[in-house]
Computed example of a mutant assay.
Amino acid sequence: MTRLDVRDIPPVDRHPTIHDAFDDLAPGETLTIVNDHEPKPLFYEFQAEVDQFDADDYEVERVAADEFVARFPKGDA
């Protein structure tokens, strides 16, 4: 599992950083990101653009008001 805390990354750089980290995963691995808001736009972006994103196994948990932990699993597609 790869964990990436993006809260200190400038917002304009977050999605490219997350995509790069996801691309580096092997099929069957999961990218866990920590964000300061629920990453719904990122989920929809992955769902539309990333064939290997396993949207069915995506999970997000609100840990605190400014801390969301989301799991982006990589499938075989």
Rank of each mutant, 00 (worst) to 15 (best):
P16G: 08
H19A: 12
F46A: 06
D24K: 15
F53A: 07
F43Y: 07
N35P: 09
A55Y: 06
H19W: 12
N35T: 09
E38A: 04
G28Q: 13
T30G: 02
L42R: 01
D24H: 12
D51N: 07
L31Q: 00
L31A: 01
V50W: 07
H15L: 12
I33H: 00
G28S: 14
D24C: 09
A26H: 13
P41L: 06
P27A: 15
L25D: 14
A26F: 15
A21E: 04
A26V: 15
T30D: 02
T32L: 01
E49G: 07
P39N: 03
P39I: 02
F43M: 04
F53E: 08
P27G: 13
Q52Y: 05
D54L: 10
A21N: 01
D20W: 11
L42A: 02
I33L: 04
A48C: 06
N35Q: 07
A55K: 07
D23T: 14
E49Q: 07
F43C: 02
D23M: 15
A26E: 15
K40S: 05
D20K: 12
A48H: 08
T30R: 01
Q52F: 05
E38S: 05
H19I: 11
F53R: 06
T30N: 03
E29I: 10
N35F: 07
H15R: 13
T30F: 01
L31P: 00
F53W: 10
L31V: 01
V50D: 04
F46I: 04
P16I: 11
D51W: 03
V50F: 10
Y44W: 09
F53I: 08
A21I: 03
I33A: 00
H15E: 12
